[in-house]
Design a protein around this nucleic acid. Structure first.
Lengths: 239, 239
DNA sequence: AACTGACCAAAATGGTTCTATGGGTCAGTC
DNA sequence: GACTGACCCATAGAACCATTTTGGTCAGTT
């Protein structure tokens, strides 16, 4: 039984789709519940059947984007454990992040969205866990433990560098005009950068890669569960 | 004969010092010419003896910060050509940038300062030239030409990667709380990152390093001249 | 010549009043 | 039970106006 209201209600699904589109285009502050309802082809009261407040709707929206993000990561890593190799993981994280419209709005400093995400302690905790720094902190030790990272540098330095590289490439890839040169595929440059920086000279055994993939997926699943919990909290109780 | 008015007038020097401090603390919009004059211990009319408008004063301020930045780079590279090695140059650029209060305000999106710097075409050109992307675009080909960069990757990719790394480390170093781990000296991590990423396996000859340093200093001098030209334009004609 | 600060006029600001907006509710409908 | 949209009321925003502020000037002083 799915915990997502849109899996049980077509109208709820349409409300979320409309909300996502409007908020991505105009930002939280500029979008009204009336507009969302109109775009979804439902009455305004219908929105309040599913979400207690506008704020809960927006939180639920952001949480679903995170869910998609995590599901993409989990799906890709489960299908091919080699995806956790830094050269594959870094471009995947950045590319998937860049395809998340609310995350991009957040990165571009949408004040109202940031305020919503950080005013409740529980929500802030989740928000913090989706930042590149938390991802690096959680995942890098696992990669290191299984030999996917070179062993001749301190892990703390490697985590810091990975974080800085993700931030730098994420920022530059989201604003190509700021880049000094045009490159074919920035994701490939990132892959190469991370490979040179972090990967060992000798490729790790397949078993080690698989073990690292399992560990990484476990972390992603934990975060995913926390996201589902937030979604539960933001919806009205289902009958 | 120096083109900087503060080298000829003690009062002009005090005005600049006061302006720098006030703008660094409060931002352009919140600071008045009266406050600057009072803090400098001069009459308000005195400010207009040296600068035609408030805007010109602020532009002159920013230009002087750039001048300091460039002078620091030129001084260090001239003193020790090895400073142009990527492992030394990258931390130098980031550290020196982080010690520039107006540049930091700009990075933190001080709207009024950004508006001032970009509304005149000539000023915008200069502003653009001080961005990391322009620096990379101008300097990387020189390093490559003299063998300071590995030759097994396209130069365009290397420039892009260097830019992304500078942006990522600059952003993270200016906001340590956002980092995943505490590291002793982030500048050292940056140095190591850039060395692994860009430097050739075999260290270049000393002559090559010196030649690269000369070429790099020439580029910095050109930018420096442009900055001096802007300073000239922002001051009242000297008698 | 260098400098000052009173002065001017334009712009900004703060306060008040009035109108518009929008989050949320709920009686009525299907 | 699911849904609707008129309605309510708190808040935001617009318009207006009086006052204050500030960029820039310049007659007078040293």
């Amino acid at each position: 039984m799915s915990r997502l209201v849109e899996h049980h209600s077509h109208k709820a699904a349409r409300i979320l789709d409309s909300a996502r589109e409007l908020v991505a285009d105009h930002g939280v502050r500029k979008v009204t519940v009336s507009e969302i309802a109109a775009a979804a082809g439902v009455g305004k009261g219908t929105v309040y059947l599913y979400w207690p407040t506008k704020e809960d709707l927006i939180l639920g929206l952001f949480a679903r984007e995170l869910l998609s993000f995590l599901d993409e990561l989990i799906t890709r890593v489960t299908a091919d454990p080699a995806v956790v190799l830094p050269r594959h993981l870094a471009p995947l994280l950045v590319r998937t992040g860049l395809r998340s419209p609310l995350a991009r709005r957040l990165a571009a400093k949408d004040g109202e969205l940031l305020r919503l995400l950080t005013e409740q302690a529980g929500d802030r905790d989740l928000f913090d866990r989706t930042q590149p720094s938390a991802m690096c902190q959680a995942v890098m030790p696992i990669l290191r433990e299984h030999g996917l990272l070179r062993q001749d540098r301190p892990l703390a330095d490697q985590s810091y560098a990975m974080h800085a590289v993700l931030v730098g490439f994420g920022t530059t890839m989201s604003n190509p005009d700021s880049a000094p040169t045009r490159v074919g595929d920035p994701g490939e440059v990132l892959a190469d950068t991370v490979a040179l920086l972090l990967e060992p000279a000798v490729a790790p055994a397949e078993q080690a890669v698989t073990a690292a993939a399992d560990g990484t997926v476990a972390v992603f699943r934990q975060t995913r569960d926390a996201v589902l919990d937030l979604i539960d909290r933001s919806q009205n109780l289902q009958q």
